[in-house]
Write a protein that binds this DNA or RNA. Structure first.
Lengths: 184, 184
DNA sequence: TTGTTTACTTACTAATTAGTAAGTAGATTT
DNA sequence: AAATCTACTTACTAATTAGTAAGTAAACAA
């Protein structure tokens, strides 16, 4: 769990963005469960955009840390680790930040749009590099460029959470299995 | 263009859901451009959920009409027609209703959740049947069940609009090309 | 010990939200 | 001609929204 109020706010905002969306959650959704006043949130994050940016930064840091932890694994195992994170999300009923924030992109303040862009390219670049190296090491077999394939891989992970939300069942499992088999 | 006020409201709401999201658009976003009062919207659609449901129904009817128009084409051509609709969307900068409404699913009133479910299964069923028949006719070549493959196809069409929104460029073209080549 | 910073609370605002009740002008029905 | 229906407008409400200004208690620094 989080120590400081600031961290608690970020973690709760993260969950709210994933469950309700950036525009649909309010300061009251954070202040009530943490038993603080909404002004306390504004103290740490002057505007809602500042909070949103911190949530994305927090996610990017976690992702970077995990990357480093996986760096020694074979590339197909690294991709399975990423897929495992999404599997967990599908069990929790939460979606990914990309799936939550890109639909609202046009309504976001400019600094947040930039952060969303940064998050998308960071994730796609990592997947592309993983696929590229994995193919060179004979661990992946697919047609087309690694960048294009990375788009499809991220697409399937992201959408499996969206479809799971509306249709339930083991949609995540079906999609990720099929996706991995396609590139192995 | 639309004749009646009711139809104008539905078409504008459709665009607002695709650009801003269901929770982020307001009655003022509709009443101002149509030069009517917000009470006029409530006259046609008592609650926001009623309006949302009508938008989905309108989309389902359009989709059913197009299906019928394509019914005589070979299945790969039918899928290309569907992809063409998404290509148009990517040029307009609008996303699809599934990509807009499934992230907000948990915040939607129950009757709208049901409609979103219906829309998802309708689209997925059509794609699955198209793939299934197309494979039987030697027009598609892919591994796994048609239902699982339909999930990946819809996933890629949907996500290409989300990624396009945040990253720009010809992401739709890259993703749909790769996706079609994978199953042809 | 005095001054300053940190991390809040209290108390508030202006704007926006979906939704409603009552009235009305014109068309349609009886 | 009278009554009803359709498609609105006028005028309003209660709730919620992000954000602010001023105060405060405790920790820390000079």
């Amino acid at each position: 769990m989080a120590d400081t109020t600031r961290e608690k706010i970020i973690e709760l905002a993260d969950r709210l963005i994933r469950t309700k969306g950036f525009n649909a959650f309010s300061y009251a959704d954070i202040s009530a469960p943490l038993a603080i006043k909404n002004a306390a949130i504004h103290y740490h994050f002057p505007s809602k955009a500042d909070l949103g940016i911190s949530v994305i930064d927090h996610e990017l840091e976690r992702f970077a840390a995990q990357q480093r932890k996986w760096a020694q694994l074979p590339e197909d195992e690294q991709l399975k680790k990423l897929s495992g994170i999404f599997r967990q999300r599908s069990r929790q009923g939460t979606i990914c930040l990309v799936g939550s924030l890109t639909p609202d992109y046009d309504t976001l303040p400019a600094p947040m749009q930039q952060k969303v862009q940064e998050m998308c390219s960071t994730l796609l670049q990592w997947v592309a590099q993983c696929l590229e190296k994995g193919r060179a090491h004979g661990r992946f077999d697919f047609e087309g460029s690694a960048e294009d394939r990375a788009l499809l891989v991220m697409s399937n992970l992201l959408s499996s959470l969206l479809f799971s939300r509306a249709l339930g069942g083991n949609i995540f499992g079906r999609m990720s299995d099929r996706m991995m088999k396609d590139i192995l």
